[in-house]
Nucleic acid binder design. Structure first.
Lengths: 196, 196
DNA sequence: GTCTATATTGCGATAGAC
DNA sequence: GTCTATCGCAATATAGAC
């Protein structure tokens, strides 16, 4: 593991936990057990390292969209596959949600990286829900854009709120899979046509 | 408007837009058209000013909970009142959502302020939904904690995602009231007993 | 590719005049 | 209560040895 990889790993943890502005290159170098000059050498500076971390973090998200949209699934099956994929991606990459909401609330110069990914997800979900309405699986009075926001909000909030929930709820009450099953059930009851 | 008030106003805008760590006391003093020494004098330092801003921002949220829970409403009516209140509070205080998610993703020493408010909201909603199940308005197989997270996620995501949505969607398609009507409809379809 | 040393700028906090 | 001036320190970036 060379200095470049060690800096990427240290940057992932530190930037996720403290935010871009609150992390210094000295701190990064110490955590990576190397020296701060290598950040400029390998990444062109602190901003470059942050952008590299962001791109690496969102690679699994890109893969999720490609996968959930690729097969010959019905719209409702695609929504289900997406929800399962979100659960898996966030479970395996617990820092993604922090980077996402950190850029949402306080955008940095690397905001464009997030922008691209969010637009892709939005378009995938919008398309899926529009098809669901067209083929009769979903309620015809549904506003597809609003249905997208409701779904994304339900999925993401579970993860971003985990730390604060654990500060006032018993941690052993956490069952990720059960939340996603329940949330999907509520959502589909809310958007599907009765009788399906 | 004395220096204290001007610093609070400048701090609200700057901390909301850039985050705590990315704002300097010089920047704050310049925006408030005063000088940086007064931050220490009035608030005991930059952290003190930030904490004061946070407390001021979340006062309308406290008022919302007191109001939505006080009357003799049915659980479903209370959920509806809460949703309307969320819309109103975020419309009148557009920075609250940034402070909330900024502390969620990158907690500062003032995190405790948010923690208190979030716990109060959670408990109010949990209680409301538990009552709704008990009195037969809501589905008996509902997990109340999960129903709370789903509702809060749907409401909040609309506001925190507004800037990024406007970067790839036409801004004139924004209808706050319509989203909240639609989201509430979807949610209630998802959690209410059939036939109510 | 990795290191030490350093240049330069900006930071938060405070002393002391008014 | 508000101001100027400044202290001590930490920030990022870079020059140059190996």
């Amino acid at each position: 593991m060379d200095a470049r990889e060690k800096l990427l790993a240290a940057g992932t943890r530190l930037f996720a936990e403290k935010g871009f502005a609150a992390v210094s290159i000295r701190e990064l170098a110490q955590a990576a057990q190397t020296n701060s000059a290598l950040i400029s050498y390998h990444f062109g500076g602190k901003e470059g390292l942050y952008a590299a971390v962001l791109k690496q973090q969102f690679r699994p998200v890109e893969a999720l969209i490609d996968k959930a949209g690729g097969d010959e699934l019905t719209p409702v099956e695609r929504i289900t596959a997406y929800a399962r994929g979100v659960l898996l991606v966030h479970t395996q990459n617990p820092y993604i949600i922090r980077f996402l909401y950190s850029e949402f609330s306080n955008p940095t110069p690397a905001f464009a990286v997030i922008q691209t990914e969010v637009r892709r997800i939005y378009q995938f979900l919008y398309q899926t829900i529009a098809e669901g309405i067209a083929c009769g699986q979903l309620r015809s009075d549904l506003n597809p854009g609003h249905a997208v926001l409701a779904l994304a909000g339900m999925m993401n909030f579970y993860f971003i709120s985990r730390p604060i929930r654990q500060s006032f709820l018993p941690a052993d009450a956490e069952h990720d899979t059960q939340y996603f099953t329940d949330a999907l059930t509520m959502y589909l009851h809310g958007v599907m046509k009765h009788g399906n």
